[in-house]
Simulated scan of single mutants.
Amino acid sequence: MVDTGQEREREPGRDRDPEGRARSARPRDGLGRPLAYGAEGVARQPEGVVRTPDGTVREAQRLLDAGMPFHAHEVFEDAWKSGPPDERGLWQGLAQLAVGLTHAARGNTTGGARLLLRGAGRVEEYARGGAETYAIDVRGVVAWARGLAARVTAGDGGDVDAAAEAPRLRVSR
C-alpha cells in the first residue's frame, strides 16, 4: 500500500495541518525541544512573516541574544522563502548557523559542528561575489562558526550556552 499521508492525517492525536504536514501543538523550550502538553513553553515564531533584511537581522539577533537560536533560524527561513532568489544563500547559511548553535546547545556536538561549518561555507561563499550582506559581519560570523565548531568537536568547554555563545551578526558600533 502506498502511503499518501491521508492515513496519517486521520490518526487521532497527531497534529497536522490541512496538507497533512506535522504541526505539533506541543509547547517548546527556547531551543525548540518539545515539552509535554500543558507545560509552559516559549512562544513560537509566526511563520511566513515578510521582513526587511534589516528587520530580519535585528529580530534574529534579538532571539540569538535571548538564547533562542531555533527561533532565530525560523526568522532566517522566512527571509530565504520571501526574499529574492539571489539572496537565498545568505539567509540559508545564517539559518544553518542558528540550527548548528541549537544542536550544539542541545548536546548534539557532531550535528552542531557540521551545520556550523556548512552554514559558514554558504555565508562566506555568498559574500565572495560582492553581493549585498546588509551590514552583516560576514568574516566575524564565519570565524565565530568555525571556532565554535572546532571547540564543540574537540569537547572543550563543556556545555554550550546558546545565549552566551550567540554570534554578533553585525559589527558593534
Rank of each mutant, 00 (worst) to 15 (best):
P18T: 08
P18D: 13
P27F: 04
P27Q: 09
P27E: 12
R28E: 13
D29Q: 07
G30Q: 11
L31D: 08
G32H: 03
R33T: 12
A36Y: 02
G38R: 11
E40S: 14
A43N: 04
A43H: 04
E47C: 00
V49C: 02
G55D: 08
V57G: 02
V57P: 00
R58S: 13
R58A: 15
A60C: 05
Q61F: 03
Q61Y: 05
L64D: 05
A66N: 09
P69I: 08
F70M: 09
H71T: 09
H71S: 13
H73T: 06
F76I: 04
F76M: 08
A79G: 05
W80F: 12
P84G: 15
D86T: 05
R88T: 15
Q92C: 03
G93I: 10
L97D: 03
A98G: 12
V99L: 12
G100L: 02
H103I: 03
H103N: 09
A105K: 07
A105Y: 00
R106W: 01
N108F: 01
N108L: 06
T110R: 15
G112A: 01
A113N: 10
R114F: 11
R114V: 07
L116G: 10
G119T: 08
G119Y: 01
R122V: 09
V123N: 06
V123I: 09
E124H: 10
G129Q: 13
G129F: 07
A131W: 09
T133G: 03
A135T: 10
I136H: 03
I136F: 00
V138G: 06
G140D: 06
V142L: 01
V142C: 01
R146Q: 14
A149R: 01
V152L: 06
D156T: 09
G158Y: 01
